[in-house]
Amino acid sequence: MNAPFTASGALNASFIALAAALVLTACSDPPPPPLPEVTFSVDGNSVSARPFLHCDVMVTKCDKDDKAPATLRIAAGKQVRITVPGEVAESPWSVAVEYKTAAGEQKEPQTVATFVPNESHDYTVALPDAGAQLQTVEVKQAGAKQDPAAAAGDIQLLARAVWSLRVESS
């Protein structure tokens, strides 16, 4: 025989459902912390970028975000100020640029600065040619990967995270 439906029965069922939902929520993993952002600034205009590549410290698990690169309009010859958060500055990091000279010669990407842990939180990119047009600026945070074929303890530094600024010429 079925028990009659009562308000207290409905209340008990609601309470049980709520308790089950709370238990499931408490058992789930907390959301991961937000990824660090790097800020690029020129003449008072700033833009922040998420990493378009982000790996764990040992560079074994990586995620890509093709929508992460930032864009900023920059006139030829202008300097770009880069600011990195503490969690990037506390590891080795570097800055790479790609540009065209004032004469229009395309330059290959090149590393223009490298920092040891806690050396700096910022850097200003100044191209060697006053009329050069910056095209891309990348910040690379180093991680370590152990080569299984190498001697025990032998590691290589790789980019574990990369932030990118794509430049629109003005």
Score class of each variant (00 low, 15 high):
residue 1 M to W: 01
residue 1 M to P: 01
residue 1 M to V: 03
residue 1 M to F: 02
residue 3 A to D: 12
residue 4 P to N: 04
residue 5 F to E: 11
residue 5 F to L: 08
residue 7 A to K: 12
residue 10 A to Y: 03
residue 12 N to P: 03
residue 18 L to A: 11
residue 20 A to K: 13
residue 20 A to M: 14
residue 23 V to Y: 10
residue 23 V to F: 12
residue 24 L to G: 07
residue 25 T to I: 02
residue 25 T to M: 11
residue 26 A to P: 04
residue 28 S to P: 05
residue 29 D to W: 00
residue 31 P to A: 12
residue 38 V to H: 00
residue 41 S to W: 04
residue 41 S to I: 05
residue 42 V to N: 13
residue 44 G to D: 13
residue 45 N to Y: 07
residue 46 S to F: 12
residue 47 V to Q: 09
residue 48 S to V: 04
residue 48 S to M: 10
residue 51 P to M: 08
residue 52 F to H: 05
residue 54 H to W: 02
residue 55 C to M: 06
residue 57 V to E: 14
residue 58 M to E: 15
residue 58 M to I: 08
residue 59 V to Q: 02
residue 61 K to G: 08
residue 62 C to G: 07
residue 62 C to S: 03
residue 63 D to C: 02
residue 63 D to Y: 05
residue 66 D to S: 08
residue 66 D to H: 04
residue 68 A to W: 00
residue 70 A to C: 05
residue 71 T to P: 02
residue 75 A to Y: 02
residue 76 A to N: 15
residue 79 Q to F: 10
residue 81 R to A: 10
residue 82 I to H: 00
residue 83 T to C: 13
residue 90 E to V: 06
residue 96 A to P: 12
residue 97 V to H: 01
residue 98 E to C: 09
residue 101 T to K: 07
residue 101 T to D: 10
residue 102 A to I: 04
residue 106 Q to C: 08
residue 109 P to K: 03
residue 109 P to V: 02
residue 110 Q to R: 15
residue 113 A to G: 07
residue 116 V to S: 13
residue 117 P to A: 12
residue 117 P to E: 08
residue 118 N to A: 13
residue 118 N to W: 11
residue 118 N to Q: 13
residue 119 E to K: 10
residue 126 A to H: 03
residue 126 A to C: 13
residue 130 A to D: 14
residue 131 G to Y: 06
residue 133 Q to N: 15
residue 133 Q to G: 06
residue 135 Q to N: 09
residue 136 T to V: 15
residue 140 K to W: 06
residue 141 Q to V: 01
residue 146 Q to S: 07
residue 150 A to G: 11
residue 150 A to H: 09
residue 152 A to Y: 09
residue 153 G to N: 07
residue 153 G to E: 11
residue 153 G to P: 05
residue 155 I to W: 07
residue 156 Q to C: 05
residue 159 A to W: 05
residue 159 A to Y: 06
residue 162 V to C: 05
residue 163 W to N: 01
residue 165 L to R: 00
residue 165 L to G: 00
residue 168 E to T: 09
